[in-house]
Nucleic acid binder design. Structure first.
Length: 629
DNA sequence: CATTCGCGAACT
DNA sequence: AGTTCGTA
């Protein structure tokens, strides 16, 4: 039966699981996951992160500072905010508001420079911004979370924020502090399913803010006045988590110099929401009993994932702005019975999001805090060109700059995890980014190489470029965004050294090879090294070393698994050698059209012979480079 | 009100 | 394999 609704107010039963019964079984069970009634999630984000990074780097503590990206302000520290400076102010406006303003431009790659740096006069026509410094600082913070919160699940949510699921470590402390919870009393009427006894009074301490339970209550009231509602065990859990959160945050501030703001609540979206209740350098607890009054007047577009298209669609459909509005706007949102009844209609409007929104509006969020793999699956570098590219030479130039960044970042990642292998390289070019003009991409397998250099990436990227613009017969190109990236990045337990392992794991060897399997094959490095001496006779080769640059290339595992015929495999290897020859040639062409772009160079031996090749086979070679399929 | 850079995933 | 989308 569906209760009739009361106009003008979201009713209490819209929020119906705020004080769930917690039993001994709940406390003792470990795998309740998102349904754990004592679940506690935190979100911690760094205050004005990019600006803070620059302050730490420059040893600035209190002065107003902004971070610049070309002409635009992308970060404003809190001292500067006191002058009314915001993002999207013009630099000139900002300077007028604050005479002492410290202005830092983000790191950029100068053309051809191997590493990004803080240069005096940056120029978006020749430089590319690098966010690498911030990535590294971000990693330091994340490492401190992991070290300081053993047992907690930690999910990096963006460069400056992370979700932390405190449920497990909090439970440990809870059982330590209140050991009687670990024993079902002999006289418990329902055994393990008996509700826990009344919790003790709570000391909220002074390290956290508490979201008021009633709107009328203001911050000026003391915590004890504001928080009159009966204490629950979930409140205790929140407070224990708050202690843990506060300790790491203080440690981070002391050791790294970054102030953070955090929120603690029973799920991710509420943690994220209340983290910004007070900023900077503070943390906020949202008790379950405070949820309804906190949510009702809130603009729902401020909720995570409702700030985009979905939120717009909801706002437009019902012409409302707050959570309470939305709860009243459509019967479907009010009661689950109706929602399921008209699910079809709802899903026509909002797809699978209908139920999600229904739950979010009443403070429910079943999404998990899930640790991300240590390395990203993709890595890309992009450049927006205010003046669209028109010549191929420009393309090669920017590809080289992007390749330089990728090389640095990949090799950086490999310091932690050698054997990191980006399986494919993708080149993406767009025309007109404001609208949905054209956008094309091209990808190709990326060879496993121990040394991933700018040259290898740039040459492979050059090939992709050739295919991309070669196929586009649409007059003169006007590319406004160019991006180059790796996808399918994985750690290979054993890299190309262990080709035999692939065969051992079920992939058929070529017949000849199987026949004399006892015949010893050259191993590892020597395998590759031996190849050039008998390049056309060795049917078993899966890798080769370039005589020019002395780098080793091997057929991808994908290819190896699909090609079992020895002859075909030899052909594939030959193709790869040809392609590699093209690498050198593409690089040569890029240099020729862009003489300044040779700062990030290969070894001098490679350069030397390339020059030679240029003189000997110039135009013809160019012809080949541009016309080959 | 927005730019640029970046990442994952869905869709075709 | 290539394109589009959503998000920060």
């Amino acid at each position: 039966m569906i209760p009739t609704h009361q106009k003008g107010k979201a009713k209490a039963q819209d929020f119906d699981d705020l004080d769930p019964v917690v039993t001994y079984r709940h406390v003792l069970q470990q795998n309740l996951g998102v349904r754990d009634p004592l679940r506690v999630v935190g979100l911690c984000d760094s205050d004005a992160f990019y600006a803070a990074c620059e302050m730490v780097r420059l040893g600035i503590t209190d002065k107003p500072l902004v971070v610049l990206q070309w002409e635009g302000i992308i970060a404003v520290n809190y001292p500067a905010r006191k002058f009314g400076i915001t993002r999207f102010h013009k630099l000139k406006d900002a300077k007028e508001r604050c005479k002492e303003l410290i202005i830092v431009h983000v790191q950029t790659y100068k053309e051809g420079e191997a590493e990004p740096g803080y240069w005096d006069n940056v120029d978006s026509r020749t430089h590319k911004v690098s966010l690498d410094y911030y990535r590294r600082e971000s990693a330091k913070i994340l490492a401190m979370f992991k070290e300081g919160l053993p047992g907690a699940e930690i999910e990096k949510a963006s460069i400056d924020e992370a979700f932390i699921d405190f449920t497990k470590p909090v439970r440990q402390v809870l059982l330590q502090r209140y050991p009687y919870l670990a024993q079902v009393p002999p006289d418990a009427p329902n055994g393990a399913d008996t509700p826990l006894p009344e919790p003790p009074p709570i000391d909220w301490g002074t390290d956290s803010h508490l979201v008021p339970i009633n709107l009328a209550e203001t911050e000026s009231e003391t915590v004890t006045e504001v928080q009159r509602d009966p204490v629950t065990w979930h409140d205790i859990a929140l407070q224990i988590a708050a202690e843990m959160m506060h300790k790491v945050r203080v440690d981070i501030a002391n050791e790294l110099g970054y102030t953070t703001s955090a929120g603690l609540a029973r799920n991710k979206f509420l943690a994220k929401l209340c983290a910004s209740y007070r900023k900077p350098y503070s943390q906020t607890i949202l008790r379950n009993c405070a949820i309804p009054n906190y949510l009702k007047p809130l603009e729902f577009q401020k909720i995570r994932f409702l700030g985009g298209k979905l939120g717009d669609a909801l706002a437009k459909e019902y012409d409302v702005s707050t959570v309470a509005d939305l709860l009243l706007a459509d019967p479907c949102f009010r009661y689950l019975q109706i929602l399921t009844a008209c699910l079809e209609e709802m899903q026509a409007k909002f797809g699978e999001n209908a139920i999600w929104v229904y739950e979010i509006l009443r403070g429910i969020d079943r999404s998990e805090v899930k640790e991300k793999p240590a390395v990203n699956k993709s890595m890309m570098a992009a450049k927006a060109l205010q003046k669209p590219i028109t010549k191929p030479a420009d393309g090669f130039h920017w590809i080289r700059v992007l390749a330089a960044e990728l090389a640095l970042r990949l090799n950086d990642a490999r310091k932690e995890r050698p054997n990191l292998w980006p399986k494919t390289l993708v080149l993406h070019a767009s025309r007109g980014m404001s609208y949905n003009e054209t956008s094309r991409s091209k990808q190709a397998p990326f060879p496993f190489t121990k040394e991933v250099t700018v040259d290898v990436i740039a040459a492979a990227g050059g090939k992709l470029w050739k295919e991309l613009v070669g196929n586009a017969q649409t007059g003169p190109m006007k590319i406004t965004v160019l991006s180059l990236g790796f996808t399918g990045i994985e750690v290979t337990e054993e890299n190309q050294q262990s080709i035999d392992v692939f065969f051992a794991s079920g992939i058929k060897r070529p017949r000849e090879d199987r026949n004399d399997a006892s015949q010893k094959r050259p191993e590892r490095e020597t395998d590759a090294a031996a190849l050039p001496s008998r390049p056309d006779t060795d049917q078993h080769a899966t890798s080769f070393t370039c005589p020019e640059c002395h780098k080793t290339f091997s057929l991808s595992t994908k290819l190896l698994s699909s090609i079992t015929d020895a002859e075909d495999r030899a052909q594939a290897l030959a193709d790869m050698k040809n392609e590699h020859a093209d690498f050198h040639f593409a690089q040569l062409v890029a240099r020729e059209v862009e003489p300044d772009a040779d700062r990030v160079g290969p070894s001098s031996t490679s350069l030397g012979s390339s020059k030679k090749q240029k003189k000997e086979g110039g135009p013809k070679g160019i012809e080949k480079f541009f016309n080959r399929t």
